[in-house]
């Protein structure tokens, strides 16, 4: 029986979760929301996390009706992510570990997403599509590692969506991706965009530049062509742009996921990460899975978007299988690949 507290703060969400043997006892979260047109910056995000981390821990303990002495392990996000926000979680986790005399464990953020998805859906050995603001990876488990089959070669899919939302000045509340999804539902015309799949990898930065240009031609970098711009620039509505962007980039993701399924002869797909709660992505993936006789596993925003619970759960699994960490190793790292972690808790 392992009871774990997890602290997550690698991006603009700060979350605390408590889990006991797969039973969710608490999962609380605050999001740093910036004004339309602005992204979140490391320093400001860290300040936000600092303001809320203590009250979130108190809230989680209260909801779970536990005392510190009931916990077996304290888990925090070791990386990947932005250093200043990561450090907030790490420093608090270290301090609590020494104060309460409870072991400390650093958890890979990506592993947290994967294990949370498996726990909630019950998927046994799925192909995992991990899509968020900072990561885009197609992952399959093999021989004690989560191996990356395909990934983005530049920016993450969520980063592409977030930045597009900034260009067209969409609200960041509750999240830019959610607002794009709502607008896209009203889109009627598909605008042709570049479709960039390179083997098992995808690329989004070119698509972003292209759609940026369609959305706001006045910001075109090549000013020499100014004369041509005024001739015939078709008007695109925000709705059509959102719709076309979603259709294009999600089709790319479905394609590489399908190829990974064929390669691994798997018929299960699990979508995790913040973009994973987009219902259009889930719908497209479900169609692909059904055509192949497979099954899609998806989760809702409580567990999809970054949360403390996933760190607690992955940490609990590690702890149960005997993983320990010395206190001196409780640093944070901005780069920490999914396949660096030895998966000690799976026996298949």
């Amino acid at each position: 029986m392992v009871c774990a507290l997890g602290i997550e703060g690698s991006a603009n969400k700060i979350g605390v979760g408590i889990i006991r043997d797969g039973e969710v006892l608490a999962n609380v979260r605050r999001t740093y929301v910036t004004p339309p047109g602005e992204g979140f910056l490391p320093k400001e995000t860290a300040a936000h996390h600092r303001d809320f981390i203590h009250q979130l821990i108190k809230q989680a303990l209260k909801e779970s009706q536990l005392q510190p002495k009931d916990l077996d392990v304290i888990c925090y996000t070791k990386g990947p992510g932005m250093a200043p926000p990561l450090l907030i979680g790490a420093i608090v986790a270290r301090t609590l570990s020494l104060l309460w005399e409870i072991p400390l464990l650093g958890v890979n953020h990506c592993i947290g997403h994967i294990e949370m998805g498996r726990l909630i859906t019950g998927a046994v050995n799925p192909i995992v599509l991990y899509v968020s603001g900072g990561n885009t990876q197609v992952i399959a488990y093999s021989n004690k590692r989560y191996r990356i089959f395909g990934e983005t070669i530049d920016i993450a899919v969520g980063n592409c969506l977030d930045r597009f939302a900034r260009i067209i000045k969409l609200s960041n509340d509750p999240s830019p991706g959610y607002n794009i999804e709502q607008l896209a539902k009203c889109g009627k015309n598909y605008i042709k965009l570049p479709y960039v799949v390179k083997g098992m990898d995808v690329s989004f930065s070119g698509i972003l530049s292209h759609i940026e240009d369609l959305a706001d031609p006045s910001k075109r970098r090549n000013k020499r062509k100014k004369a041509e711009i005024t001739v015939e620039e078709p008007e695109y509505t925000k709705e059509d742009l959102c719709y076309s962007l979603q259709e294009t980039i999600f089709a790319m993701l479905v394609e590489i996921t399908e190829r990974a399924m064929a390669h691994c002869e798997s018929n299960e797909v699990l979508i995790v990460g913040g973009v994973g709660c987009n219902e259009r992505l889930q719908e497209m993936m479900r169609i692909m899975c059904e055509e192949r006789g497979g099954k899609l596993f998806a989760i809702d925003e409580r567990y999809c978007i970054d949360n403390g619970l996933m760190i607690a759960h992955a940490g609990a699994e590690m702890f149960r299988s005997g993983t320990r960490m010395s206190f001196e190793d409780s640093f944070v790292t901005q780069r920490y690949r999914t396949d660096e972690v030895l998966v000690t808790w799976r026996d298949d």
Binding site: H54, K58, V92, T95
Partner: peptide, 11 residues
């Protein structure tokens, strides 16, 4: 951050 955490969560 560390000293505030000690103050808040000291047993």
């Amino acid at each position: 951050l560390c000293t505030d955490t000690i103050k808040e969560f000291e047993l």
